[in-house]
Computed example of a mutant assay.
Amino acid sequence: MPTEVEGTHQIGDMSLYTKTWKPNGEPVAKVVFIHGFSDHCNRYYELFPSLAARGIEVHGFDQRGWGRSVHKESEKGLTGPTSLVISDIVSVIKSQIPPTGNTIPLFVMGHSMGGGEALTLASDPQYADLMKDIRGWVLESPFIDFPQGHAPSSITVFLGRLVGKLLPHKQRWSGLPPADLTRDPAVVESLKADKLDHDIGTLEGLAGMLDRTNALSKGHTRLNKGVRSLWLGHGTDDKGTSYPASKAWFERQTELVDKEFKTYEGWSHMLHCDLPDNRSIFAKDVGDWILARVGPEEVKAKL
């Protein structure tokens, strides 16, 4: 059975909670996972153990402002600006890059807000040199745009930005109904009961998330040339992020040769905890794609 190891990742005076799902024996691949808005790395059900059972080590962490990386009430949703969000993710990724001579490939996977952050990183020229260390990018229901009818009004956005200039750390409840995130009633109740899912953002953090989303949906960013492979999975009944926007973004990536878009017909936002019978399907799809990009001799026994 895979083992789970908790730890911390220190960035200055900030301690981020981490958890690693380790396979038996040496891993054939590693994944750094970026969770979504008001989420944390312990909410991904069978996905991480399933990947670890196939030889894929998964390193998750709770981002600044979320989950077990929150140490007091004032830190809830306190992500800082996009520059800090991305530099935190880069710091974690760099801590997981195999040492020179180790050929284990590293993948980055992001869900929802984390998927949008992964794409922001993959498109940031400041981090172009990092692309050579990342074998592939895996995106689950990435936040590229709001689903139709769910975007905040222009007045709400304008006022939020205005107040945010004066009070960037002002907190605001910004949650989604759990029933909009998954079709599994048990998971809906679990989300309601999870005190770590606080649904609070700061005006600065929310504005940064909107800016990242706007840049992706409007095509204002381009993937760094060093991006080699990309997989994107999205459900057609997603009420958290936009399936059509993901599809449109993907189709614009004409310069990327190794890419795959996977449609999950009728599935909701959290593909990893959709209906119980579907979870193994999603985990297998992700694992198959990753293992297909690992040297064949290392993974024959795992397929």
Rank of each mutant, 00 (worst) to 15 (best):
H59W: 07
L78T: 00
V28H: 11
S38E: 01
G60H: 02
I56A: 03
V32I: 15
D62C: 07
E73F: 05
Y44T: 07
S38N: 07
E46A: 09
G60S: 08
E57Q: 15
G67N: 01
G67L: 09
R43A: 08
K72D: 05
E57W: 09
A29L: 15
S50E: 08
P49A: 08
F48T: 13
R64H: 01
E57R: 04
V58R: 07
E75L: 01
V28I: 15
R68F: 05
Q63P: 00
K72T: 09
L47N: 06
R43L: 14
E46L: 10
C41P: 05
T79K: 00
G67P: 00
E46Y: 05
N24F: 13
S50K: 10
K76R: 14
Y44S: 03
R43Q: 11
G25I: 15
D39W: 07
K30M: 15
D39A: 09
N24T: 15
E57T: 06
L47Y: 11
S50F: 13
D39N: 10
R43Y: 13
K30Y: 04
F48G: 02
L51W: 06
V70S: 01
G55A: 02
I34D: 05
A52V: 10
H35K: 14
L51T: 08
H35Y: 12
S50H: 14
Q63G: 02
A29I: 12
L51N: 10
E57K: 06
S69W: 03
K72V: 09
A53Q: 13
W66K: 02
K30G: 11
R68E: 00
A53I: 05
S50W: 12
G65R: 05
I56G: 01
R68T: 01
H40N: 11
V58I: 08
S38T: 15
I34K: 07
L51E: 03
H59V: 10
L51C: 09
R54D: 03
F61C: 08
G77I: 07
E75R: 02
L51I: 09
A52Y: 12
G55L: 09
V32M: 13
F61N: 02
H71N: 06
D62S: 04
A53P: 00
S38M: 12
Q63M: 13
Y44H: 15
F48I: 06
F61W: 09
H71C: 01
L78G: 00
D62K: 06
H35M: 11
D39I: 13
L78F: 04
V58T: 13
G67Q: 01
F37N: 07
D39G: 10
Y45A: 13
D62F: 10
S74H: 02
T79P: 00
K76W: 04
Y45R: 15
V70R: 04
E46S: 12
R68M: 06
V31L: 14
Q63L: 11
